[in-house]
Amino acid sequence: MLKHGLDPADRRRPERLTPAELDRRRQGMDQFLRLAGPPLDQLFNLVCLSGCNVLLTDADGVVMDQRVNAADAEQFRDWGLWQGTVWSEAAQGTNGIGTCLAEGRQVTIHREEHFHTRNTAMSCMDAPIWGPDGRLLAALDVSSARADQTERYNRLIGAQVAQTARAIEAVFFRASFPDARIVVASDDTAEAAVLLAVDKDDLAIGATRAARRALGLEREGAFRPRPAADLLGRTDDLTGFDKAERAAVARALARAEGNVSAAARALGVGRATLYRRMARLGLTEKSG
């Protein structure tokens, strides 16, 4: 890490923010941290018996939250894997958190792969978390203090870390668009959360990082609304107002749980009229 002017033999602990500085950062991520809490608890319950520390950082590599057993706390505190410490690559060289954030991808940094020699007793499994604006928001880290940690076990933990990171990203995305319906834009969710936020007019108004990439949208930042059907590749013979009418009838049927009479009342039309419209629009009672 010559570009950062770091010495691998440097034994100093990572820089740590003051309580006031950490509190300010946490306040700026309050909703995200609250929503991330339950998934962090679930992940910790899976790995806590194997001497692991679960950490959640911001995009700068500052540890915002953590879960650790009391028996392991002293070791991780001594290593500097603690709330308020800075684990960016610029500050610490190659390490799970910093390298994950620098490269924007899932990584495992096992023992001697760490830049600083004082960090070579740990194994770190990390996955990035992307915000609703498509920008890197956080890193999720599981660090192990076990001397007998194997690479095979690292892979198992790494898979769970990636799954939890996707879950946190998805729940925060949903919360960021409370009045929209969330559509899975791909059947392949193995690597990322591919989600669209669609408003009442069937316009896509938001997309996760993976959805933006998969659908050729703006990579990050402001999102230009556009018809969800266009993005999802749905085609039919309807155009203009027919599409709008079909969407309105389909919504009414869904709300009425397929009951045509109830849907007709909600739309202010007769039951026979609604049946005719359904036939013309290619809808059935099961469309609800």
Rank of each mutant, 00 (worst) to 15 (best):
A244C: 08
G233L: 02
H4W: 15
A147M: 13
N45V: 05
E169N: 07
L156T: 15
N119Q: 11
V184Y: 08
R209M: 09
F177M: 08
I157H: 03
C48T: 13
L217V: 09
G134E: 11
G134N: 11
I109T: 10
A20M: 11
E74Q: 15
M64H: 01
T57I: 09
P225C: 06
L215E: 01
R234A: 12
R12P: 01
N53E: 07
R224T: 14
E218N: 11
D202I: 06
G282D: 07
A102P: 03
R155I: 11
I97R: 06
L238S: 01
A91Y: 00
A139M: 01
Q83A: 13
V183W: 01
G240Y: 02
L274M: 04
Q31N: 12
L22D: 03
G216T: 09
G104T: 12
L40D: 01
G80Q: 03
E285V: 14
D10F: 04
M278C: 06
E74M: 12
A185Y: 00
G5L: 08
E169C: 09
R16N: 00
R255K: 15
F177P: 01
G61K: 03
S144R: 00
E89V: 04
L203N: 12
R226F: 04
A36N: 02
P39F: 05
S186C: 05
V161M: 06
G37V: 02
A147Y: 09
L253V: 00
R12N: 13
A197C: 10
L81W: 11
G84K: 02
E151K: 14
Q75T: 14
M122D: 07
N154D: 15
A165Y: 11
S287F: 10
A36C: 06
G28F: 05
D78K: 03
S143P: 09
S50W: 04
Q66P: 00
D242M: 12
A250T: 12
R155F: 11
P128H: 00
L238F: 07
Q106I: 10
V142I: 07
G5A: 03
L274Y: 03
N119H: 13
D141T: 08
G131I: 09
D23N: 12
A254H: 15
R174H: 14
T85N: 00
R213E: 15
D148C: 07
G93T: 09
R77K: 13
V269Y: 07
L281V: 06
R276C: 07
V47T: 10
I168N: 01
L274N: 02
N95S: 07
S186Y: 00
D58I: 03
A204E: 05
E218A: 15
E89L: 02
A244D: 13
L253G: 01
F241T: 15
L101E: 00
A71C: 12
S186E: 06
Q83N: 13
I129A: 06
L217Q: 10
